[in-house]
Design a protein around this nucleic acid. Sequence first.
DNA 1: GCATGTGAACCCCTTCACAGCC
DNA 2: GGCTGTGAAGGGGTTCACATGC
Lengths: 275, 275
Amino acid sequence: MTEQHEAPGGVSGRALQKDIPQATVARLATYLRVLAMLADDGVAIVSSEELAVAAGVNSAKLRKDLSFLGPNGVRGVGYDVAKLRSRIEDVLGLSQGHRVVLVGAGNLGRALVGYGGFQRRGFTVVGILDSDPAVIGMPVAGLVVRDVAELAAAVAELEPTIAVITVPDDAAQDVCDRLVAFGLQSILSFAPCELVAPATVEVRRVDLAVEMQMLSFERVRNAEQAPLPVAHAGSGRIAHRLPTSHPALQHSATPHTATSHTATEPSSKGSVVTP
Amino acid sequence: MTEQHEAPGGVSGRALQKDIPQATVARLATYLRVLAMLADDGVAIVSSEELAVAAGVNSAKLRKDLSFLGPNGVRGVGYDVAKLRSRIEDVLGLSQGHRVVLVGAGNLGRALVGYGGFQRRGFTVVGILDSDPAVIGMPVAGLVVRDVAELAAAVAELEPTIAVITVPDDAAQDVCDRLVAFGLQSILSFAPCELVAPATVEVRRVDLAVEMQMLSFERVRNAEQAPLPVAHAGSGRIAHRLPTSHPALQHSATPHTATSHTATEPSSKGSVVTP
DNA sequence: GCATGTGAACCCCTTCACAGCC
DNA sequence: GGCTGTGAAGGGGTTCACATGC
């Protein structure tokens, strides 16, 4: 039915981000952060090798990732930092920024409103709501906590493109349902429970306990392979290893090994219900 | 050198969690949460199908995951909830619980101390530190913020097994280096930058902006495939869809589609530096 | 000469289907 | 009969190595 000949149609071959691997999408976000740092430092051109080291991946993977966006570099030279940056922002749909509404003004919710990292990367928190009379009306980082009962009105008025759920887990599904009913299509939840939503709605979940449990397992795994790590922890004085000023691009290898396991990666897309 | 014939040796075939896929480890943590809910509800036996639905995966994947831990169920019957639960806790190294120290008492750090989800899943926050004189000495959820200058003493005294970094990104590497020097082997960082650490140290990173950017992209992708989602958001009154009481096991399929993209998945293990 | 872009091999993970066991 | 456990098939992502183009 309707075979969808992917005729790009529009002027200037824009889209075709039909099938970019999710793993790649996650890394594009990382590259973006590094590119922003480079731009701030006045770097104009960067090679795949340099960018890759700064982002903690290998250069072949980086080039493959970027190749999904079409040609973005100049052979024998490298990538134009500004151009690549705006290309990635364009593909990720970040060009016009995002308006974020937060549901749940507990510890975590209030912390996120004040978190500068969002604003810096183009996400503006435009509203925060809660059901607890004790916090409704409370000012938080320039916003006032609104009653979640006026969620419909708040959504209509603030026109958020993304919603973040930071309510207790037994309230999460309810909030999610209502957000969906009011038109939200992108939801990030911190509640440690599965959320069901229509297939057209994108729901991502961040479970902090899961992250810690994975850390826990890796320690078990490592301890099993290595015989005895001589685990004498902090005794008296230890050699500080502070400086090593990193000017964004820290080319040469460190005595350490880059081992940041960035949490990210969706799982099954589409229907998962009983077949 | 030393070919390591994996002779299980010890009594009662315990370990052999040598090569459990990381993807599986991430899901084991999820299963654990569901099993805890079931146990609270007094459920004693659960089938792979039921557990899978509750965890948002398909049953074949769940059985495959559990098979890495050895036989844990009874054919024709299902899994013993209590037994399976303690088996997974054992494999993940959660049996004795974990002591967590937090570095960075900003909005996020203080929020995490108060977050009940950790304690409930066996992670006890035993200390929080910061460098800002304005917050040092401040009481936070039963703890007092200590000076990060006494990090060595705090680590020696509190004996944490996991450290969480919630400092601004330009201080993160420094804090990480010191934690490693003081013997920490498992680190979870919320700073949006790569951290370098010895290969023996496990570093995981949670980047909230990346999660949002992935949401952003999926919206672009969906919008591209679907012609026009008729995006008339919250107008006046909308049908509330609240109740649907879920008694932990909500067997039958919902009108919705389970679409929780749980964030999780490490990337490359081991050396990533220039070869 | 040098760095990008990419086909192909490789590996990990998911999915299927069924054998095995209660 | 029913449900677990698992070999085998399939797909997605990573790595390699080189062709391509400045």
